[in-house]
Design a binder for these strands. Structure first.
Length: 106
DNA sequence: ACCGTGACGTGTC
DNA sequence: TGACACGCCACGG
């Protein structure tokens, strides 16, 4: 497995429960050069239950990866189980719930 | 080696 | 605001 994919997965595991981040923030933190790399790496996490992939969304707070879960509703269910409100596949108060991996450096 | 594709993001109109 | 084009880069056919 490519190293950068493991790095993306590790960052995903560091996201605090009830908080969310986006692909661009992870890509920037790991200097992947493109947010698509973060998305591609998360695609590789499909089936790995140790990775909280539901806490990673796109920059608008939309659940763009929900179709890659076991069921299209699983991502929303996981978020709601952590107290994150989701309406029409979008996270409510995304700006306040947003978390960046750069927070780790503080 | 070329081309289309994608869990993305930014700039323009 | 919202739709659209384009840049981005690894991967599979």
């Amino acid at each position: 497995m490519a190293q950068y994919i493991e790095d993306v997965h590790d960052v995903a595991r560091l996201i605090p429960p009830g908080r969310v981040t986006n692909y661009g923030a992870i890509a920037d933190f790991l200097t992947l050069g493109s947010a698509r790399m973060a998305g591609w790496a998360m695609n590789k996490a499909h089936g790995d239950e140790t990775i909280p992939a539901h806490r990673v969304v796109n920059r608008k707070g939309e659940l763009s990866g929900r179709n890659h879960f076991a069921t299209p509703t699983l991502m929303q269910e996981r978020l709601e189980a952590e107290g994150v409100e989701v309406v029409d596949n979008k996270i409510v108060n995304f700006d306040e719930l947003f978390w960046s991996p750069t927070e780790l450096l503080k």
